[in-house]
Simulated assay, not measured.
Amino acid sequence: MTRFARREAAVREILESTPPVVPPDLYADALARGSRMLRRRAAARRVLWVLLGAAVVAFTVWALTVRPWDQPPSDTTPPVTGW
């Protein structure tokens, strides 16, 4: 028997058998689990947005106080005075 024939026989056996009995409270459990998952994802998304906003604010405050774009004063040569 070839692999294709074995697969076809297995599929026919599955299709011709009676479907398994589904518990009656399965729908309610799945619905509760799904809504709980959605609430957790939404809460995690909100927390991540808040953390991102806090990081942007912290970076902005740091950049405005430190001013990293300004050149630091040169300490290698003293200022030339009295020529």
Rank of each mutant, 00 (worst) to 15 (best):
V21C: 01
T77C: 02
W62P: 00
G53E: 00
E13Q: 14
R7S: 10
M37T: 13
V47I: 06
R7N: 13
R39A: 13
A32Y: 02
A58V: 08
P72I: 01
A9R: 14
F4C: 02
L52C: 10
A10F: 10
P24D: 09
T77H: 10
A44L: 12
R6F: 07
L15M: 13
R6W: 02
P79K: 02
A32R: 13
W62L: 15
M37E: 15
A32W: 02
E8I: 11
G53Q: 00
P23R: 15
R39Y: 09
A10L: 13
G34F: 13
R67V: 03
E8T: 14
G34S: 15
P68Q: 04
L51W: 05
S35F: 06
P20D: 09
D25Y: 07
M37G: 14
L26A: 12
V50Q: 06
E16K: 09
R6T: 08
Q71H: 05
G82A: 03
P78M: 04
Y27W: 03
G34Y: 12
A28L: 12
P24V: 08
R33D: 10
V22I: 15
L26F: 08
P24Q: 05
P72C: 00
T65P: 00
A58H: 01
A5I: 04
R41K: 13
L48P: 01
L26P: 00
R41M: 13
I14K: 13
W62F: 15
L64P: 02
V21M: 05
D75M: 10
L48F: 03
G53I: 04
S17G: 14
A43G: 06
E8D: 15
L15N: 11
R12Y: 04
A32D: 09
R39S: 11
M37V: 10
T77K: 10
